[in-house]
Amino acid sequence: MENVNEREIDFKLLSELFFTFFKLSPISFGGGFAMIPVLEAEIVYKKKWIEGKQIVDTFVLAQSAPGAIATNSAIFVGYQVAGIPGAIAAMLGMVIPTFIIVIILASLFVFFQTNHYVLAALNGIRPVIVALIASAAYKMSKTSLIDKTCWIICLICVAVLLLCPNINIIVVILSGAFIGITIMKVKKMFSNSVKTE
């Protein structure tokens, strides 16, 4: 994958990237993780754009970089296939279909939001949204809260946010990075084995 940026811009390849993700995007219900097997089948086995080993790296990066896993995967696949123009083509292919669908749904909502039945339906739907958020936390905790220290950091974080409603949430999130580094250093002082995964 050397010199990807020095290749001449191949518009045929770019449009293929765009339309591949354009086609995959509307079926990406349920978020990033549901997307992974579909992406792998299309990109690795059908298009043979990148190898199995690279797709693993792609998904690791997609989960670690900020933003949606599906979009991040598309961007990095596009980059590996056709450099920066490829990244942009893949990103647009991924974003445009869902953008249009969301706009249509939002317009319908604006039109019907004062309807008696819609209001009642929303009363039923709001608890599901709370459950969706809570279940996201639960599912992430299974893989990410790997020891007691993690649980303590997480609980302190919840307590701080509840007790200080005006605290800047970005500062709270980023403090996790500093806590992680500090804990690693402290653990290093007491033992040679550092377990962070």
């Binding site: 670690s64 709001r126 949204i129 709370v130 958020i133 809570a134 996201a136 936390a137 992430m140 905790s141 990410s144 809260l145 790997i146 220290t149 993690c150 649980w151 950091i153 997480c154 609980l155 302190i156 974080c157 919840v158 946010l161 509840l162 949430i169 709270v172 999130i173 980023l174 403090s175 996790g176 990075a177 500093f178 806590i179 992680g180 580094i181 804990i183 690693m184 550092v194 962070t196 995964e197």
Partner: peptide, 24 residues
């Protein structure tokens, strides 16, 4: 260092999601 950063980040991120569930 990268692992240590994500070790702590994931814990605070989950904390913010739990908080969001309570707030919502």
């Amino acid at each position: 260092l990268v692992k240590a950063i994500f070790y702590g980040l994931r814990a605070t991120i989950i904390g913010t999601i739990v908080y969001a569930a309570i707030k919502f």
